Computed example of a mutant assay.
Amino acid sequence: MRPISSNALTRALFRRRVFEEDNGPGVEEFKKVLEENFKLATGLNIEDFIPWVKALDVRGFVAKLKRLHRWYDDTLTKIIENHKTKAKIAIEGEAEGKDLLSVLLKLKETDVEKDEETDNKLTDTDIKALLSDFFNGGTGTTSTTVEWALVELIRHPDILAAVQKELDSIVGRSRLVSELDLHNAPVLQAIIKETFRLHPPLPLLIPHTASEACKVAGYHIPKATTLLVNVWTICRDPEVWSRPLEFDPSRFLPGGKNADVDLKGTHFELIPFGAGRRICIGLRLGLRMTTLLLASLVHGFDWALPDGLTPETLNMDVEFGLTLERSVPLVARPIPRLAHEAYEV
């Protein structure tokens, strides 16, 4: 899943595939950096709990992070310089078009033209930081969410059949699903919401810091306190959700008890992207990628498990960390269910 989500994300950001089928230049390096980035993000850093040994960098976390930072900085600098020399970027077999980086560079030029004296303008450093946030935050979370959704649909064949029927009525079986097909697909949207509820990709969200001392529910929170929001517990609270441990997308369908609940931070019982001013900057992009990828997988294929494995015996253990990933990755065989010409490129 991760190669697919990484390719989709980087094509939207700067029109480049990270994982190429022909193992193109830089692919192996991208893979290693991505894997190391997630290991460091989910690893235990002893200096966080014993501040007086921070300067010693006992486990080499700081050195590794600095090396990753230099790699990201050098790589994104090359990509930005390449964009600056080309008004439009074309990929073989695709029409020329704009990516996010092109839009940001154009915005930077506009800011300079409007006011050359102000310090409050977009810089290359700002652009690189924004692209890094999108890349680091959007690859693992998207792939993890889609994998959990697919696992739950395999375990609930009646729900899988319902969403396939819905997509067939919208798209048919002569072509693949597109983003324009997904504006009115309530079953699919309900499945996405239920997956985020039962398997939030970031169980504790991203750590925040209290900007000033305050009181919350009678508890004194000192200034600069690190705050963690346990959305995993919130989404499984029986006082908030009926049958919280069951995968039941119908709760979000029209007429359901939670039909009006959305994922955009306005309903605190379901905030996988956070809420308020610090809500995830990639919310819209992440939702679109997750929805389109899951729709493509369930509309284009039926799914068969390896011999000896049944939906009831699928391992559902989780590996807790920064992201909520499966302990045992899903292994399933896709079976084409559309007309042959739908898969022709």
Score class of each variant (00 low, 15 high):
1 M>A: 13
12 A>M: 12
17 R>C: 10
20 E>C: 13
30 F>D: 05
36 E>G: 05
38 F>W: 05
39 K>D: 11
48 D>K: 00
53 V>W: 00
56 L>W: 08
58 V>M: 09
61 F>W: 05
63 A>D: 01
70 R>F: 04
76 L>Y: 12
77 T>F: 08
80 I>W: 01
95 A>S: 02
105 L>S: 04
111 D>S: 02
111 D>R: 02
115 D>F: 10
121 K>I: 13
123 T>S: 15
124 D>G: 03
124 D>S: 09
127 I>G: 03
135 F>S: 03
138 G>Y: 03
139 T>R: 01
142 T>F: 04
144 T>Y: 07
148 W>Y: 06
150 L>P: 08
171 V>Q: 03
185 A>Q: 02
194 E>N: 09
195 T>E: 10
201 P>L: 10
201 P>A: 07
213 A>N: 05
221 I>H: 07
229 V>G: 03
232 W>F: 15
233 T>D: 11
236 R>F: 10
239 E>M: 09
244 P>Q: 09
252 F>M: 02
254 P>E: 06
257 K>Q: 14
262 D>E: 15
263 L>I: 15
263 L>G: 13
270 L>P: 12
270 L>D: 12
272 P>Y: 10
273 F>W: 11
276 G>E: 12
285 L>G: 06
297 L>A: 08
298 V>W: 00
300 G>C: 06
301 F>T: 11
303 W>C: 10
311 P>W: 04
311 P>L: 02
325 E>T: 14
326 R>G: 10
326 R>P: 12
329 P>L: 10
336 P>T: 15
